[in-house]
Each structure stands twice: as structure tokens, then as C-alpha cells.
Design a protein around this nucleic acid. Structure first.
Length: 811
RNA sequence: GCCGGUGUGAUGGAAUUGGCAGACGUAGUGGACUCAAAAUCCACCGCCAGCGAUGGCGUGCCGGUUCGAGUCCGGCCACCGGCACCA
């Protein structure tokens, strides 16, 4: 079959008949199947796109044939750094290169033959989209979820912009690998931390990979403990955060982060020089080194003491850079006996080590960091750790010296970027009125085209006077715009809400429509977004819900990650390794159906693996086999036999077995096994076909092949559609229901049992299916082969697993 | 260090969740068809011993539970991913 020409033919027909356009009348049967949209950085689709979109489209097609009204949109996450970096290198404007790339990718995506509803397409760089991204920003601002503050932020000198915590990997920029430095800047943040607890809690109800949920839990990093107030000799107080209030009687020092304001305030004149030097030194150490757990613990005594509120002991105050100012209260209590770091610190500075917890097993070694029983703790002696934590904090709380407290590792999301190619932040700064949001009626704040975007550490927009100069919406005086753009993750944090109402020009979406269409029923994309896009999207959904726009709090009910297709050498595909496999070549030779089918058959979908040429040939061979038998049976005019005997029953069994398995496997994205069952079914058809023509029931065979085409349709849509039409059908194969297994056909009259003697297989035994346990026992023991194997041994016990296995235990 | 995952023939990968390990493919071997090749079709294909029937071994390693373990439990090893001076 000339795959390329039939693919083109059917794509045109599908487009004309609008078969892939979502029908709003059927919203009650909706199934929102979403793949992560593409980033148009390269001009062409790579294998990764294909692997995400091809098999998932097959899943969607399967669901369609199961009676769902499918909404499967596609669009482009079009703002972002690569286009801008490309522009810096070549001089081609990001808008021009992006638009061109999108055009190419659209053509390729269409040639894939996926059932994307192009009428819902969105491109985040277009005004009618980013207008609503800005709307979202303003809404968050209005609701106290967007705020500006000066803070030490992650600065990437390579990309000339700040980055969110999530975009810093091992102290380096996730994009360009440049080492991140801390810079004090005034930036916009989204208050994702308001939702930390809910983001954590709601993970439990999601049908997501455990791994991804674990990653998010980790990232949110909840720790339950308490704050304990220490009073200084000066009368100043500070709180320490601890998860081990049970060890508070073992405190032998307290440590403040060097940035803590009390360090300078309380520092004694004698120690001032040493403390200033320490602060100076630690500020020079970059964040990565400072966060390294293996680094030697250092600190400096500030010449002042604090009082332990539980026993009124005087303990020295240190400034130590292993204490992070940004976590908890920026102050910790040092309990050397029961904390590794405190232990090392105490060793170095010769501080006392007091054991206050004993383990149950009498282990004497220190530090001992697990729970145990309290000692040296006055009235708490003998109490188990868990109980003591509560009791001590409760007592402290009564006198206002402590409280229970939960801390999260999660930080607010920094969304400002000093780059050009993004959605401008819709804020105005007026000398008189201060920070003023752009009125909704003035949206969008348009991104100007003529801008010098070559980076010099300042926002490119800051250099564009016609953009920067505006008037204050409140007082009408001259004012300046915010020169920064929004992190592209803001654009992608809500795109799934825009798709179902993508042409709405009055609102980002009509809540009535969205509440019917969402949440997304199946979301498929790479696992690399676990702590970024997937977390941000959940946050934005919850925020919009609390503003009253949405009736649901989770955007993606069910999530699947596709694996990664590696280069033939087993490494990740990369230009520098020269192992990149382009889909184009294969699509040119085999067509998109075969390429897709190979992706589905050759890998375990969620695992991925190295690319292999041989596999694709085998899949092409399989479709040839299907076509040959289809043609042969279609062209056989004479039907010499109408019997439905043993052979027909066998074939019918194979057919229904395939139907049952494919239905089951498709639901769980087990594409490779589904294809394997189809191959088995085709093998069974060939076996039947090899029979003498006089005993072949051609009419029945036609029926079987009809089912084969239906079964195959989601996997190879064009190929199946072509066979379906050659078979004389006028309507699309995708408007027919997917075959359902006939349970009766799956009940064989006989079963082959494996017969074991003392758990070792000795022989096989065929028995009628509906035998009782007793009958089976009798039959087994009466069998000649069994008798022979048994010899004169005594049967002790007989285990029967229905329809599977019989185990005779004998002596 | 903590969290999660993976480990099965030459190879991609299966195994209905405790019941015949290796489905379905690829590669390989032998055969049919062909002048020949390709394509196609048929058979074999975990390892060791044996001409053979057959026997022994076998799912990273060691142990356990069980009539029965790739699957459950305990203890290790290796690799991959994430988090990590988070108090």
C-alpha cells in the first residue's frame, strides 16, 4: 500500500468532515485528552514529540471508538529563551523565527494524522492569549497572590535573567549551565506557598505516577515541629525552628544565620572584628558551596548568650553559615548529642555534649539522631520522644515561649524575567501613586516589536522608551512600565483552561464551559516538569478556584509520563553526540502510521529506550501481512463452507482474546502488549487461512477481519481507514464502536492443566472446563502418565488451581 | 544521607498480581519456493550434559515464608531519577 498517498488522502477527508472537532452538544460524554504543548524552538518535530503525541493520539482514538466525545487540542508554548537566544545569534527576530517554526511544526503535526482539534489551537505569544496571561497576573495581584519584594534571587549571567528556584539545578541554570549567583533585586513573586499544604494534601487523590507525586512532596518539603523562644541577656528574643523539641534540654549553643539582624546587634565589642570578618567571608562563598553538606561546619561566637527557656541555662550564641536565613526562622538550637551537624560543630568549638535521649537498645554512640526515651530532662524523663515533643511545646506555649509550627521548603515563585520574548508584566510605577496595576480595559500591554534585545544585564524593554513611558492610570501623570516579562511557565500554567474556549475575546474562558470541560481526563507529557509546570498549574487552578472562576481544584485528574527515546547508542539524543534520529527519514520511507506503530510496539511506553531500525521493519511487515490477508479474503468470492466447527471456534477464541486484551491494555497505556495481541490474532487468521478451501468459512473470516480493522484503527488510523473503505464502508471507521469481547467465546470447553509432582511439572493434562474439584482430583489420579510418574508414592495432598495447575504432594 | 524507580535469553521486551518464566517481535539456524536474489511461507531457537527419551540449572546477590516466589518478607549489590547543612 502506498502509505504516503493514503495518509494524505485521509487527512484531507478528516479535515473536511471535521471529524476531529469537539462537538459541544456532547459535553456530557466529553473526554479531555491533553498532551503537553510543543515548544517551537527547533523547526521540526523530533522523536520525542512523536513519542508523546503518536501513542497518546491512539489512546484518544481508542476512547473515541469507546463512545467518548474527544477533545484533544494542540498549541504552542511560544514565548521563551531559545527563540531569543537564537535571535541574538542570528539577528532574526524572535517573533519571525517563532512564527516560522510554528508553521513548519503545524504542517508536521497535521501530517502525523493525530485527531487534534485545530479549531482550538493556541499560541502563547499572540496578543489574544498573553492578554489573558496578563489578566491572570492582575487577578493574582488583586487577590494578594502576586507581590513585589527585594530579595536575593538566582541570577544567571549566561541568560542575563533571574530564575525561579525550580529552574536552578545543582546551583546551575537548567538551560545554559551557567553557575547561578545571588543578586539582590526587586522582583515579582507569586504566593504559591499559600497553597503548600493543599498542594501536598491533594496529591493523594491524583491518578499520577507515584514517582512524580513523591517528587512534588519532596519539593514542597513539609516539616512539622515547633518554634521555641530564646531570650538573650540583652532582652532581645528570637525563635528557633525545630522538629526535635524533645531534645531541647540538650541545647548547648544556638546558631543564627550570618544574615540574621541580631548577629550584628548583639555582637560584643570584643567579638565585633571576628564576627564582621566571618560575615564578610561567608557572603563571598557562593550558594552552592554554602549548601554543600560535606563542607566543614564553621561559625563564630558573637560574645553574647541566650537563655534556654526550659531550664534557664545560659548558652552561647554563634553565627554559623550552615544555618540558612531563608528557612524556618534563620535560627537553630544546637543539640550536639542528637544532631550530626551540631555534633561536628560542638567538636570543633569545644562545646558540651549532653545526652538527653537514650535508645531502647542501649547503644551508647553519639550523636544519636533517632527517637528514644528522654533523660536529663527534668519532669520529662522517661517520656518517649514523640510524646515529649508535644508536651514540651504545649508547656512552652502556655507561657508564650513556644508554639507548634509547620515549615515548608517550597518558596514563592519568582516570575519576573529580564528578557524580551515573553508577556510584559502589566504594572505601572508612578512617582506619586506607587505601584499601579494596568486597568483590565487596557490589556494587553503589547510587546513592542522593535526592541534591542541583545543582552547587557538589563531588561531589553527598559531600553525601549516608547514602551516604558506611559501615564499613571490613577493620577494621569507620567509613569513608567515594568520592564520585565513573565516567566514562560506563567503562560503554560493556565493554557489547558484556554483551549476549550480559545476564541473568547471577553474573558480568558467562560467558567460555565470550563467547569464542564475540565479537569483534563488524561494528561501526557515528560516527567521533567514534575516540580515546575505541573506544580505551577496546580497552584494556578487552586487560586482561580478560590477566586470563584473554577469549581475544581486539580487540573489534571490522571497523568502519564512517556519515557525517553534514546539514540541508537543508548545515550540521550543530542547534536553534540551525533546520535539524533530524525523521524522525517522514516516517515518518508514508511509513512506516519508505521512510525507510530513502531513507537507503540518497540518500547514499554513509560520506559522508552534506545532507537532501533530493525524494529520498524518488523512493524511494516506486520501491516503487509494484514493487508495481504484482507485482500485475499475480500477477493475470495466462493464460500464453500458455512460450518462453525472446531477451527472456527479456535479462530473466534483468538479474535475475542485479542479484543479483550487490547481493550484492557489500551486503558493503561500498555501499547506494546496490545500490538502483540493483534499480531497473535493475525497469526491465528493465517493459520485458519492455511486450511483447505473446502473447509474455510469465508463469511466468518470476513467478520473476523472486519474486527481486525476496527481493532487496528487507533494504532494505524490511515491504514485502517483505507481498508475500512475498501471493505465497502461509507462512514469513517472512527465512527464505529470498538469491538467488545464476547465472554462466551473466551470460555474454552477444555483446559490444559500443568500437573506438578511435588511442585515440579511432570506432564500436561487436558480436562473439560466445568469439572468440579473432586472430579478433577479423580481424573488426575486416574491418568496413566500421572500414575506412572507417581509410582508407588503416597499422595499426601492435592492442590487444584482452577483452569491452571494441579500440584500433587507425595511421599 | 533521604525519597522513588529499575535489574528477566544474543536483543527490544512479556508474565492475567503467588500458579506452566521468556508472550509478541528482532537477530540467528535449518528447510520450502526461485535459474538466482529479494519477498513470502514452515520449523527450531534460555544455559549445561546427552545421539536421544530425559535430567540438572536458571529472573542482580544471600537468606526466609509457602505445596509453589520474577512476583511476598528480611539483608545486601549495581545502575537511573529526584531531594539534601531544611534544623
Amino acid at each position: 500500500m502506498d502509505m504516503k498517498s493514503i495518509e494524505k488522502k485521509w487527512q484531507e477527508k478528516w479535515e473536511k468532515s471535521k471529524i476531529n472537532t469537539f462537538n459541544r452538544k456532547n459535553t456530557d460524554k466529553k473526554f479531555y485528552c491533553l498532551e503537553m504543548f510543543s515548544y517551537p524552538s527547533g523547526a521540526k518535530l523530533h522523536v520525542g514529540h512523536w513519542y508523546n503525541y503518536g501513542p497518546t493520539d491512539s489512546y484518544a482514538r481508542f476512547k473515541k471508538m469507546k463512545g467518548y466525545e474527544i477533545f484533544q487540542p494542540m498549541g504552542f508554548d511560544a514565548f521563551g529563551l531559545p527563540a531569543e537566544n537564537y535571535a541574538i545569534k542570528t539577528g532574526i527576530h524572535p517573533k519571525d523565527s517563532t512564527e516560522k517554526n510554528i508553521e513548519t511544526m503545524e504542517t508536521q503535526l497535521k501530517a502525523m494524522g493525530a485527531m487534534f482539534d485545530w479549531s482550538a489551537e493556541i499560541k502563547t505569544c499572540e496578543e489574544d492569549y498573553y492578554k489573558w496571561t496578563q489578566w491572570l497576573f492582575l487577578k493574582l495581584y488583586e487577590n494578594g497572590l502576586a507581590y513585589r519584594k527585594a530579595a536575593p534571587v538566582n541570577w544567571c549571567a549566561g541568560c542575563n535573567t533571574v530564575l525561579a528556584n525550580e529552574q536552578v539545578v545543582d546551583g546551575r541554570c537548567e538551560r545554559c549551565g551557567t553557575q547561578i549567583v545571588k543578586k539582590n533585586l526587586t522582583q515579582w513573586f507569586f504566593k504559591i506557598t499559600n497553597y503548600a499544604e493543599e498542594l501536598l494534601k491533594d496529591l493523594d487523590g491524583l491518578d499520577w505516577p507515584e514517582k512524580t507525586k513523591a517528587m512534588q512532596r519532596n519539593w514542597i518539603g513539609k516539616s512539622t515541629g515547633g518554634e521555641i523562644k530564646f531570650e538573650c541577656e540583652s532582652g532581645d528574643t528570637f525563635d528557633v525552628f525545630t522538629t526535635r523539641a524533645d531534645t531541647v534540654f540538650g541545647v548547648s549553643f544556638v546558631a543564627l544565620a550570618p544574615e540574621h539582624p541580631l548577629v550584628k546587634k548583639l555582637c560584643s565589642p570584643k567579638q565585633k572584628k571576628a564576627v564582621d570578618k566571618y560575615i564578610e567571608e561567608t557572603s563571598k562563598i557562593n550558594e552552592i558551596d554554602r549548601l554543600s553538606a560535606t563542607r566543614e561546619k564553621t561559625g563564630v561566637f558573637i560574645g553574647h548568650y541566650a537563655i534556654n527557656p526550659v531550664n534557664n541555662k545560659k548558652v552561647p550564641i554563634f553565627a554559623a553559615d550552615y544555618v540558612l536565613y531563608s528557612y524556618g526562622t534563620g535560627a537553630v538550637m544546637g543539640v550536639p548529642a542528637h544532631d550530626e551537624r551540631d555534633f561536628k560543630f560542638a567538636e570543633k568549638y569545644k562545646l558540651p555534649v549532653t545526652r538527653v535521649i537514650i535508645p531502647g537498645n542501649g547503644d551508647e554512640t553519639l550523636p544519636y539522631t533517632d527517637d528514644g526515651i528522654l533523660i536529663n530532662s527534668l519532669g520529662y524523663d522517661g517520656m518517649p520522644s514523640a510524646e515529649a515533643r508535644k508536651a514540651i511545646l504545649n508547656t512552652l506555649a502556655k507561657s508564650g515561649k513556644g508554639c507548634h509550627r509547620v515549615n515548608y521548603r517550597l518558596r514563592d515563585w519568582l516570575v519576573s524575567r529580564q528578557r524580551y520574548w515573553g508577556a510584559p508584566i502589566p504594572m505601572i510605577y508612578c512617582d506619586d501613586c506607587g505601584e499601579v496595576p494596568v486597568p483590565y480595559k487596557d490589556l494587553p500591554v503589547k510587546l513592542p516589536y522593535n526592541v534591542e534585545f541583545r543582552p547587557d544585564g538589563k531588561s531589553p524593554l527598559a531600553k525601549c522608551e516608547e514602551f516604558m513611558n506611559t501615564v499613571c492610570p490613577v493620577c494621569g501623570k507620567k509613569a513608567r512600565r515594568d520592564p520585565d516579562t513573565l516567566d514562560t511557565f506563567v503562560c503554560s500554567s493556565w493554557y489547558y483552561l484556554r483551549y476549550p474556549d480559545s476564541k473568547n475575546s471577553n474573558m480568558p474562558f467562560d467558567p460555565e464551559i470550563i467547569n464542564q470541560m475540565l479537569p483534563v481526563d488524561k494528561y501526557v507529557g515528560g516527567p521533567e516538569h514534575a516540580c515546575m509546570h505541573l506544580l505551577y498549574a496546580r497552584f494556578i487552578t487552586k487560586a482561580l478556584r478560590d477566586m470563584g472562576y473554577l469549581k475544581f481544584g486539580e487540573p489534571f485528574k490522571s497523568l502519564t509520563h512517556q519515557g525517553v527515546i534514546l539514540g541508537p547508542d543508548g545515550n540521550r539524543m543530542s547534536k553534540s553526540k551525533g546520535n539524533v534520529v530524525s523521524p522525517d527519514k522514516y516517515i518518508d520511507i514508511y509513512g506516519s502510521d508505521i512510525f507510530r506503530l513502531y513507537l507503540m510496539f518497540g518500547f514499554s511506553y513509560t520506559e522508552g529506550g534506545p532507537w532501533n531500525d530493525d524494529g520498524i521493519k518488523s512493524v511494516a511487515k506486520f501491516l503487509d501481512r494484514v493487508e495481504r490477508i484482507f485482500t485475499k479474503v475480500k477477493d475470495t468470492k466462493k464460500n464453500l463452507c458455512t460450518d462453525f466447527g472446531h477451527n472456527e471456534k479456535e479462530l473466534n477464541y483468538a479474535r475475542n482474546y485479542a479484543i479483550a486484551c487490547v481493550n484492557r491494555d489500551m486503558e493503561v497505556f500498555s501499547f506494546n502488549t496490545a500490538v502483540a495481541r493483534l499480531m497473535e490474532y493475525v497469526n491465528a487468521l493465517y493459520k485458519y487461512d492455511a486450511l483447505d478451501p473446502s473447509v474455510k468459512n469465508i463469511k466468518f473470516m470476513r467478520e473476523c477481519i472486519r474486527d481486525l480493522i476496527l481493532l487496528l484503527a487507533p494504532f494505524t488510523p490511515h491504514f485502517a481507514e483505507e481498508l475500512w473503505s475498501l471493505d465497502g464502508n461509507k462512514k469513517s471507521v472512527f465512527l464505529s464502536p470498538y469491538p467488545e469481547a464476547d465472554e462466551k467465546a473466551l470460555e474454552k470447553e477444555e483446559t490444559e492443566y500443568a500437573v506438578q509432582l511435588n511442585s515440579k511439572i511432570r506432564c500436561k493434562l487436558v480436562l473439560p472446563r466445568d469439572m468440579s474439584d473432586d472430579e478433577i482430583r479423580k481424573a488426575v489420579l486416574a491418568d496413566e502418565k500421572v500414575k506412572e510418574a507417581l509410582g508407588d508414592k503416597q499422595v499426601v495432598k492435592l492442590i487444584v488451581i482452577p483452569n491452571r495447575l494441579i500440584n500433587i504432594i507425595c511421599k
